[in-house]
Amino acid sequence: MVYISTILVILSVLFSAGLKVGDQAVDFELKNIDGQMMSLASNEQAKGYILVFTCNTCPYSVAYEDRIIQLHEEYAPKGYPVVAVQPNNVQRSPGDSFDKMKQRAKEKGFSFPYLIDETQEVTRAYGATNTPHVYVLNREAGDRFVIEYIGAIDNNSRNAADADQHYVQDALDGLIEGKGVQTTKTKAIGCTIKWAS
């Protein structure tokens, strides 16, 4: 299984510029801050995931931390937990090291996994470009997850109360209510991912 996911990751890195809405999500094996490895298949109860590429050091990621926590609190009980992935190379961004990730998660009381993508293969496979960058995944059958939404959390990074478009919430509500997702892709200003040089 691990081999298959590795092959899938390598294939998608080679043949595409990242995953698109409608594509099957690539599973992975990444280390959580508790030291355990995690994959999409490891949570059998999940109906899907809110996969967030985010980090400690980007001001936009920090601005969205509380909203990411709220998304998890609201949607994990409905079957869609948050899985956060730190995509930056830690040599280029020392503030995003594994120890700093643990520290930040403790300070903010993250109740969701915060994984490190040391080789950046998963980040590349998904085609994440900036932080925070959200992928909403929905389980179709077995361990097959499909990407239903890619983009920003809402349309006001500065102030949650001023946002009048809640893209991720709307996508999740659409999935939960069986109405489908209206807005499937959005863009936002964010920090570029720090790739290994």
Binding site: K187, A188, G190, T192
Partner: peptide
């Protein structure tokens, strides 16, 4: 212009929104 999604594509459709 805080509503990023409303203008990023008008600058350049291929832009993901990352800077620089």
């Amino acid at each position: 212009e805080i509503d990023y999604n409303s203008w990023i594509d008008k600058v350049e459709p291929s832009w993901s929104g990352a800077i620089p």
